[in-house]
Design a protein around this nucleic acid. Structure first.
Lengths: 194, 194
DNA sequence: ACCTGAACACCGTTCAAGT
DNA sequence: ACCTGAACACCGTTCAAGT
């Protein structure tokens, strides 16, 4: 049976989860598929584009945040909080994914422009376009930076004594705290609500 | 004349500036020093620690922010803004440095724990320790993420038509806007000031 | 259409041996 | 003390050749 791109991508994701980004090489991936490394180049242009597709797969199905019209107070807050929490969860599902997404994002290869979805919510709330763009980018930097640090720490922990007694700080809690800080900053830039 | 570590580090910085992080290999560095690659290992333990020293050199002399007691209003704002602007300037001085600092930070090898200095300012203003830590880390994620994107874009621009007519957005302006957002978020977590 | 074989031009790191 | 030579175990990528 001929190789398929889908098969390649999901095998790559398996290697990423089990051994990390450093061990995700074209040769190792080929070995896992019982094929020579050069065979991969019939299906993908190069490693970069393979990684970009991996990012797409990791982020696939991430729903853009929606404003709940029935909510009163700050409807955008729970909306963005839910979206950010979903994004973090997907990243935490795959080892080294925050690092991977950040590097792909920089090269502009990742199909998903992450900051667009939250920006739309903010403009819907009356924020100016440029301000909304900046604010969402700040949000994305926070999410990727935070999760990257969580994943790096998890790896260090795995190297030292397994099951570390207590993590330095609860990731979920500090993530929530950081989100609140950014939301408070956004609130200050939003038109005054009654 | 024998090689010195200082010589190695500053030559490495030169390669980083001229050719970028991808081209900063032990073999290329050795070539620049008219020496064989193996010779480097008498002076440094491995590439990681060399990169960590590079980070230290890039960030050397970055003064921690000080609170101006004579200022009224929000003395911490200009203080943190000045520090963040200084940090950005140092990073912009060296190609790929934001990427480099982020990766070293994650592994915990970089001597300078960047988020400590701004955290001290916030606790001095009466913020609780944990909140201050989270807030400063959020600030650091923003700075590194923003500058990384600036540097990546600069590289893409250099690849395409040189002297691009107008950058997509002014880096300095969007940096200032992001800073303000974060400062507004911090203000909300600070004890009410008169 | 899909894959192998073989090569090219690299990596980081180690270590006996030279001076 | 400081460096070279030579090797080990890798990389990503290309491309003629096979089926």
């Amino acid at each position: 049976m001929a190789l398929t791109k889908t098969e390649i991508i999901s095998t790559a994701l398996g290697i990423l989860d089990a051994y990390g980004l450093n061990d995700l090489t074209m040769r190792r991936l080929a070995d896992s598929l019982d094929v020579k490394a050069s065979a991969l180049y019939w299906h993908v242009a190069n490693k970069q584009s393979l990684l970009a597709e991996l990012v797409d797969k990791i982020l696939a199905g991430l729903e853009p945040p929606e404003l709940d019209a029935t909510a009163d107070g700050d409807p955008w807050r729970p909306s963005l909080r839910g979206w950010a929490t979903e994004l973090r969860a997907r990243l935490l599902d795959h080892r080294d994914s925050a690092d991977l997404v950040a590097s792909m994002r920089a090269i502009g290869l990742a199909g998903t422009e992450l900051s667009r979805a939250p920006a739309a919510v903010l403009t819907a709330m009356g924020m100016a376009d440029q301000e909304a763009t900046t604010a969402s980018q700040t949000l994305i930097y926070f999410i990727l930076g935070h999760v990257d640090e969580e994943q790096q720490r998890a790896q260090l922990g795995a190297l030292a004594g397994e099951a570390s007694p207590t993590p330095v700080m609860d990731g979920t809690a500090s993530f929530a705290a950081g989100l609140n800080l950014i939301f408070d900053g956004m609130a200050a830039a939003l038109p005054h609500d009654g």
